[in-house]
Structure formats: C-alpha cells, structure tokens
Write a protein that binds this DNA or RNA. Structure first.
Ligand SMILES: [Mn+2]
Ligand SMILES: [Mn+2]
Ligand SMILES: [Zn+2]
Ligand SMILES: [Zn+2]
Lengths: 156, 156
DNA sequence: TTCATGTTTGTAATCATTACAAAATAGTTT
DNA sequence: AAACTATTTTGTAATGATTACAAACATGAA
C-alpha cells in the first residue's frame, strides 16, 4: 500500500489515512461512485468519516488529476478512478455507468475553434444490455430526476 | 407563430400560452438556458409563471423530443432547443455552453456492446476563446460547484 | 512544549429539483 | 349557458446534493 502513499506525495498531497482510504476505494473498484456510496462504504473503516471530507478530498484529487468528476447522472456527481480518456454508457433504467473504451480524435487536438480543451466528456444514454434482457422494467422517462437512493436496482 | 402551435399539436401536446411561450424561447435563441434563466426572462411576459410549470413543460418537451436536457453544468440542467445531434464546449471560467458542430460516428450505430443507445452526449471542457483572451480571470477549479447565480461573467 | 499550519468533522445554509394539492382553465355534455 | 370532467397552472412545502463555516484535531517545526 506504499504505492498509494507515493502517488499522493508526488503531487504534494499529504498522505493522511482518510485520503489513502479514499484513493484506494476510488481506484481499486472499477465502478463510478457517488459521495453517498463512498461514505456508506468507508464509514465501516473510518466510523467518524464525514461527507465534507469526501467532498474536500475528491475535489482535491480531481484538481490534481487523480480522479475525474462525471456529471452524467443528473443531480449527483460520480467519480472515476480511471483518468485515461474513455467514454461511458449511462443506463436510464438501472442508473449504472459502464466504461466504453473508445477515445475521441477531436479531443486529442487539445483545442477547437480557439477554445482550449482540458477535458473530453463523452457518454451514451440508453438502456443497458442487462436491463434490455430483463423485461417488465419500467423505464425512467428521460429528463426525470429520481433521487439516487430510490433508483437502486439489484443486478443479480 | 402558428408554426409553433402545430409543432405541439402534432405531438399531442395542448398548445397553451405558457407552452408556446416556452417553446418559442427555447427554440429561437441559440443559447442553452437553465430553468432559472428562463423563468427570469419569461416572467416579463407571463407575470404569474411558476417554476413548476417550467419544470413540467421542459420535461414534457424533452420526453416528446422537442428539446434536449443537458447535464453538463454540474448542479443545474440546461435545455437545448436544437435536437439534431451535436456536441458542446463548456467553459469553466464563464460557464457558457457553446455548440460544436461535430457528430459521433459510434453513436449513430444506435447500439454498442449490446446496450441500446438513445442519446449521444459529447462535450469538451476547458477555457473558451473569449476567456483566454481576457487575462487575469481566476479560473474555476475543476469539480468546484459554484452556484450559477454567482458565476455570471459579462461577455461584452 | 509551544506555535503554526494543515486536516477533519459537525452543523447550518444554499439551491436545484420534486411532491403535492388547491385554483384556474379548457373541452364536453346536457 | 350551466354543469361536469379532465388538463394545466400555480404556490408552497419537502427532499437531497452540495457548499460555507468554524471548532476540534493532528502534524511537524522551532
Ligand atoms: Mn469510467
Ligand atoms: Mn447545443
Ligand atoms: Zn441497466
Ligand atoms: Zn469562457
């Protein structure tokens, strides 16, 4: 686990226990977590962990290029431990975000029409393979914001 | 202005004064408005207009394919009257969203890895041409949510 | 230890969005 | 037209993610 400590130190971030735990959680599992999910998961390891710390930490990591913040799910930010450019698929039924391994040739130019490009965000919205296979599922009407707490669907 | 009325009628939407006004506002000006901006602008024409009506109307329009909802600006949805597929540039300094006229070949397939694609969302984040030219402007750190009310920067 | 600086935490405030029900409107039937 | 019904609009309250803030805590140097 000294690798994580080095990653933080290299970027001038003091490697506290909280930060190391957050970095481990975000980079190890390949999902795209929300603050809420992260908090629920990490409180088991750090009972006193506050959401404010998670907001602070993830903003710091985001600024230092350790994670990427995704505003795909309306109303709730998700964080990606994979900073290499890739796209996403957002399922409007189950709310999952799935990695799509394609990259954008336009974005690589770093500039378009005189605007400086810092980040490239691409995602597809639709119904994922699993949800297509599981019929009878009421699809969430597009644009409808459903509080994430209520959107959870177990994907066996 | 009977064109707008027809557009609504064709899709089974009763063409009320509020809806016609909203449709006119969203489709005529090429910007990507928020509910807040729309409300501020339209209250002049309809003094009793409520935000709830705007939420309802835009969700309805979005479901019927008359507008597209963009979750680019974190914390505030924006609505696009142009439904033809195109990309966007989001300036992290002034918060503007600029149309980028490229389209995604992958998205046109309508399907990827078995997932059904309903919408394609692509945008670049960075600093726009105007903000690059105007130095001394403190750039908003990425991931930092700034209430839109306070983000307004006049672009001469 | 003392001091200074950076970090974490809890709590309160903010603000976009959703829920809900009453009031207003429009269309239909008598 | 009046009565009735379904739809739309509106105001207000609730929800929930995010931000602001200051006190408590930890760390490291003097
Ligand atoms: Mn990803
Ligand atoms: Mn557009
Ligand atoms: Zn799904
Ligand atoms: Zn700009």
């Amino acid at each position: 686990m000294n690798v994580l400590k080095d990653i933080l130190s290299e970027r001038g971030i003091r490697p506290t226990f909280q930060r190391l735990t957050v970095l481990a959680a975000v980079s190890e599992n390949r999902s795209h977590v929300t603050i809420r999910e992260l908090h629920a998961a990490l409180v088991k390891k750090i009972p006193t962990l506050s959401k404010t710390t998670l907001y602070n930490t993830l903003e710091l990591f985001s600024a230092k290029g350790l994670v990427r913040s995704l505003s795909i799910d309306p109303g709730e930010a998700r964080y990606d431990g994979v900073v290499a450019p890739h796209h996403h698929f957002y399922c409007s039924v189950c709310g999952r975000i799935i990695d799509i391994e394609i990259s954008c040739p336009t974005g690589r130019a770093g500039e378009i029409h005189g605007h400086r490009i810092d980040e490239v965000h691409g995602y597809f919205k639709g119904v994922c393979r699993d949800c297509l296979a599981r019929p009878g599922q009421t699809s969430v009407p597009p644009g409808k914001h459903i509080p994430a707490q209520r959107r959870r669907i177990s994907h066996a």
